[in-house]
Amino acid sequence: MKTDWRDYLYSSITLSLATLACLATGYTADMLLQNALPSFHALASALIALLSFGLSCAVQARILLKMHRLTPGTYSMSEQVFTV
């Protein structure tokens, strides 16, 4: 599989956005849940942060599929799909 600098740039931007969404949601949930769940706010905010990371990764994967659709089929390793 051919890679160049753009592939690394796109993947680092995507992971950075997912991580920022996770941290922002976890921090906001922690602030909001400190009064509502004083004993369990850390656990609840961690679970919400993990959920937001998963959801943001899923949304980004759907966006990537819309931008660069892979057609179903059998490909050899020298096909254009793998060596763009």
Rank of each mutant, 00 (worst) to 15 (best):
P72E: 00
A58T: 00
R69G: 03
I63H: 06
V81Q: 02
A42Q: 06
Y75I: 06
L70K: 01
Q34A: 07
T14L: 03
L37N: 00
R69Y: 07
S52M: 15
L55D: 09
L33T: 15
F40S: 08
D4Q: 14
G73K: 01
D7R: 01
Y8Q: 00
F40N: 12
A49F: 03
R69S: 11
T19S: 15
Q80H: 04
T83P: 01
S76A: 06
T83N: 09
Y10Q: 02
L55W: 00
L47W: 09
E79N: 03
I48G: 09
G54I: 13
A36I: 14
T19Y: 12
H68V: 13
G26P: 04
W5I: 10
Y8L: 01
R62A: 07
S12W: 00
L15G: 05
E79T: 08
I63F: 09
L65M: 07
L47S: 13
L9T: 06
Y75L: 02
G26Q: 10
T14R: 06
E79R: 03
H68K: 11
A42G: 03
I48K: 03
A21I: 12
A61K: 07
D4N: 14
E79I: 02
A61W: 05
F53S: 12
R69Q: 05
L32M: 07
A44R: 12
T19K: 09
L9S: 05
K2L: 12
G73I: 10
S56A: 13
L47C: 15
L50T: 08
A36P: 02
Y8S: 08
A46F: 14
F40W: 07
T25L: 11
G26D: 03
R62N: 09
Y27N: 10
F82M: 08
L20H: 06
L17D: 02
S16P: 04
E79H: 09
E79W: 06
R62Y: 06
T14F: 03
R69H: 03
D30Q: 09
S11F: 10
Y10G: 04
A29Q: 01
D7H: 11
T25Y: 12
P38K: 00
R69L: 12
T74C: 04
L47H: 13
L65E: 12
V84C: 04
A21N: 13
S11N: 07
T28D: 10
A36C: 06
L20G: 15
Q60F: 09
L37A: 04
T19V: 13
T71G: 00
T19A: 15
Q60V: 10
L20Q: 12
L65H: 04
L50K: 13
T25A: 15
L20V: 14
S52H: 08
L51N: 13
R62H: 00
